[in-house]
Design a protein around this nucleic acid. Structure first.
Length: 655
RNA sequence: GCGCCCAUAGCUCAGCUGGAUAGAGCAACGGAUUUCUAAUCCGUAGGUCGCAGGUUCGAAUCCUGCUGGGCGUGCCA
């Protein structure tokens, strides 16, 4: 049990007796101390509880009373009541030492598996297999993978399921492209590249017609905003809001003009390329034809189905290549196509149970609190992703009987998931705890969604390459600057750069609060200081250096006799953090926030560096102290290693 | 129009269901090195937590209004 859980378990009986209804909330008010002068932990429940119990109960008095009834002296120093009624707790050194001795000897560093495992389905990544993966897939993949690992490590049953987009319009595009533009030789030689080329080509042509169709609307918007601007200008000078209105109208007009210009430029650019222009002239109805190919595929057309079966394995291989590089694995990859024959069944079930009805030709589920319905069948008879999502819930419930389903998806889909979960509950899935694990957008340094200069999304692999290259530069520079000359071979440098580069992207992402947007900065992610992967890796590698210099076997030290001991404050400070690894992982899964793990690891690395400065290990004053410090070092490195592995990042032994 | 989210140091961000004097990192300035890898550590400076009210022993956190921004909004995913 974590230290915090131990403390809570002691207070629980007394608090449940005093306040049966609110005791669990009150227990949550026991937490690590905010400042070291307040001890190791603080309990803040006395003030609210005093208020709850009545006007004439003093919080300090109440705190003292409670302390008299709670047994803590086997692992805490005598508690203090401070200020208006804070209870300050300091863990006894002998108890802390004992729990660390156990952690040192434990392959899991003191983290026990839960006694009440739950079954989680984690739905994340979910790319369209016909398109190259892009920057938008980073967060879902990295966060989902980390949650998967943390839950598993804590002893829960986890099923990771990659809900691949393998049945949508993108395949209509590839099929259309294949039928009209395929280069046979290239296809035979490198099918994946050729299919990718076909996808991009058709997407470009369709994009042209989309853009041209948008032009009238964009022009209308500019006119509308010009009108708004002149209306603001017409406001009397005395109006307080005039300048604000004016500014806003001007900005909005500029935005509309920019959007129009961009689109016009794109249209002109495509028209000016002779080859493209010829294709555009030859395929004027390509947008509709692509949809028709898709509809044929869904309708069971033999030829399109055959092509789909031929293309799909290639597309999936391509995606798997990226996952291998990212070191991400799924238990299952039931894509959209897997649910194809269930969609009409789901719609029928919605109709029969009365939660859905026909409206304007579409089958809709109207839900309380929502203005617009969730549409499960379009008026043309086609199904939507809401339909697939319901079919997926039905399948997962039947197959795995999960307690929780996590959807690691962009926050912009919040409303969709609120509706989906509400509909699922109406269909009878009350028992499942559905959670939308939402995350923010990755922005460029201007604060705009991260895109290439030409407005396309940024490819994921290119981003990885860039990070690896940047990491390589940093590794080489630092190795060259070493006092005794370079230590790493070219192969080592390349291998380390791959781990640090990809680790930088993963760690950089997960050190952000998942709900907020963040600015992508490669410089910051591979920086050497601050809360970065390099700082963590360096801390880990330094432990290796200590053991090498001291000529001690790391595995051997774990089982060697001798206890942890605290000679200096830095010994104890490091030990205190080491003892809280379990709690850090528990905190992560309360609200599914990996950044709580990165914060913990960063705190650990900082405490280790303070320890490193102040506490000689190899030349410790006594043999016993040397052993103690070696054990603390080893445990530090192992917790960093496990912690990073839970974030999907391997460690390097030297750098 | 309606709905959801956001606003914290010059910059990038934490701040865990209300708790003690709001924290990191970067950038700035000042120190520490015959090293267990200085890729580090110590220190200084920097804030009206968007604005105005309210709730209470206590508010960055909860409520209301306002300002500024993002996103979503019936047949895309």
């Amino acid at each position: 049990m974590s230290i915090l859980e131990t403390i809570k378990s002691r207070f629980r009986p007394v608090l449940s007796e005093l306040a049966p209804r609110t005791s669990s909330a009150l227990l949550e008010m026991i937490r690590p101390a905010q400042e070291s002068r307040f001890g190791d932990f603080q309990a803040n429940f006395a003030m609210p509880l005093a208020k709850q119990l009545g006007a004439n109960v003093g919080a300090r008095e109440l705190a003292t009373n409670i302390l008299n009834r709670v047994k803590l002296d086997d692992f805490c120093e005598v508690p203090e009541v401070a200020g208006p009624g804070f209870i300050n707790l300091r863990i006894r050194d002998d108890w802390l030492i004992e729990s660390l001795n156990k952690a040192v000897a434990d392959p899991r560093c003191g983290v026990q598996a839960t006694e009440s495992p739950r079954t989680y389905v984690v739905d994340y990544s979910s790319p369209n297999v016909a398109k190259p993966m892009h920057v938008g897939h980073i967060r879902t993949t990295v966060i989902g993978d980390a949650l998967d690992h943390v839950l598993r490590f804590l002893g829960h049953r986890v099923i990771s399921d990659n809900h691949l987009g393998d049945w949508g319009t993108q395949f209509g595009m590839i099929i259309y492209g294949y039928k009209h533009f395929v280069d046979r030789a290239a296809y035979v030689e490198h099918p994946v590249q050729e299919l990718g080329r076909l996808y991009r080509l058709v997407n470009k042509l369709v994009g042209y017609f989309d853009a041209r169709q948008q032009l009238p609307e964009l022009r209308g918007q500019v006119q509308q905003r010009e009108a708004l601007l002149s209306r603001s200008q017409a406001l009397p000078e005395s109006d307080k809001k005039r300048s604000a209105e004016l500014q806003r109208s001007q900005r909005q007009l500029k935005e509309a003009q920019d959007a129009l210009q961009e689109t016009e430029a794109r249209v002109r650019e495509l028209e000016s390329e002779p080859k493209t222009a010829a294709l555009l002239a030859a395929h004027p109805r390509i947008a509709d034809d692509v949809l028709r190919e898709t509809a044929l595929l869904h309708g069971g057309d033999a030829e399109n189905l055959r092509l789909w079966h031929e293309f799909l394995p290639n597309c999936r291989d391509e995606i798997q290549r990226v996952y291998r590089r990212l070191n991400v694995r799924f238990d299952f990859e039931y894509g959209e196509s897997f649910y194809h024959d269930q969609l009409s069944v789901v719609v029928d079930r919605c109709l029969q149970s009365g939660i859905a009805r026909e409206s304007n030709g579409a089958i809709c589920i109207f839900l309380d609190g929502f203005e617009t319905p969730m549409i499960v069948r379009k008026s043309d008879g086609a199904f939507l992703y809401a339909t697939t999502d319901l079919a997926t819930i039905e399948f997962r419930a039947r197959t795995w009987n999960p307690d929780v389903i996590l959807y690691v998806v962009d926050h912009r889909q919040s409303e969709h998931f609120e509706k989906l979960f509400a509909a699922a509950r109406q269909l009878g899935y009350h028992r499942i705890d559905f959670r939308h694990i939402k995350f923010g957008t990755i922005l460029d340094d201007q604060g705009k969604p991260f895109r290439t200069r030409s407005g396309d999304t940024v490819g994921l692999e290119g981003l990885l390459d860039q990070a690896v290259q940047k990491a390589h530069e940093v590794i080489c520079r630092l190795d060259d600057e070493k006092r005794n000359g370079r230590e790493l071979s070219e192969e080592q440098r390349a291998r380390i750069a791959e781990i640090i580069g990809i680790g930088a992207i993963k760690y950089g992402d997960q050190s952000q609060n998942r709900e907020s947007d963040y600015k992508y900065s490669l410089e910051k992610m591979v920086a050497l200081d601050g809360n970065t992967i390099t700082y963590l890796q360096y801390s880990h590698a330094r432990v290796g250096g200590i053991f090498r210099k001291a000529e001690v076997d790391r595995a051997g030290i774990r089982t060697s006799p001798g206890s942890i001991q605290f000679a200096l404050p830095a010994d104890r400070a490091l030990a205190m953090i080491l003892a809280q690894f379990h709690q850090a992982l528990l905190d992560v899964i309360v609200d599914y926030r990996p950044n709580l793990l990165t914060t913990y690891l960063y705190d650990l690395a900082k405490a280790f560096h303070v320890f490193f400065e102040n506490c000689p290990v190899r030349d410790a004053e006594t043999e016993a102290l040397r052993t103690s410090r070696l054990k603390l070092c080893d445990l530090t490195a192992r917790i960093i290693e496990i912690g990073l592995s839970l974030l999907g990042i391997p460690v390097v032994e030297r750098m």
